[in-house]
């Protein structure tokens, strides 16, 4: 009961804030709603026994990436929103497309989960790492053993992205 109440409250807030993010007039307000949205998603992760992921979500998303967005929003400091150029016909078209995709998604999700029933033995995971609550240590273990190569690749990706971002944002390259 309490679990259901918590889930529905969180879900309603997450979706509502999501709508606010995409509909807010001012980009700064949009960023603010995004932060709160990410924090609530982190709470959702805690209810799903994923404390480490929840903390990482707050640390990296809410505390890092979104700050970057906020910086950029302030840096470009728009006089007027770009929406004044918007084309009503395109909005209608995209609305139609979206309705179709929503329908498809929900139908697929519902039908597949109804069809699945009990999962077949032994096909659930490649690495089979069952976990208990409070799994930070296990997660670290898995990350540095089974997923070592993807982990190193991710770190290379971050390094490349860092260099790329600096090169792109630097004002006078080579002068």
């Amino acid at each position: 009961m309490a679990e259901a109440l918590l889930f529905y409250t969180l879900a309603a807030l997450i979706l509502g804030l999501g709508v606010m993010v995409v509909s807010a007039r001012s980009a700064v307000h949009s960023v603010l709603f995004l932060v709160v949205n990410f924090l609530l998603v982190a709470v959702l992760y805690v209810t799903l026994n994923a404390e480490f992921v929840a903390v990482i979500q707050v640390l990296v998303y809410a505390g890092g990436i979104v700050v970057l967005y906020l910086f950029v929003v302030m840096l470009v400091n728009l006089k007027q929103a770009p929406e004044r150029f918007s084309d009503p016909r395109r909005l209608a078209r995209s609305g139609l497309v979206l309705g179709g995709v929503v329908l498809a998604l929900i139908v697929v999700v519902v039908s597949s989960s109804l069809r699945a029933g009990a999962a077949p033995e032994g096909t659930l995971s490649g690495f089979g790492t069952p976990f208990t609550s409070g799994n930070t240590e296990q997660l670290g273990w898995v990350l540095y053993t089974s997923y070592l190569i993807p982990f190193e690749l991710a770190s290379m990706l971050l390094l490349v992205a860092m260099v790329g971002a600096i090169v792109l944002a630097k004002r006078h390259l080579g002068e």
Partner: peptide
């Protein structure tokens, strides 16, 4: 069990107030 990380991540939220 993620106490220290919790402190780091929550303090990183404080920057929003200032900006």
């Amino acid at each position: 069990n993620v106490g220290l990380l919790f402190i780091i991540s929550v303090t990183s939220i404080g920057v929003y107030g200032i900006i």
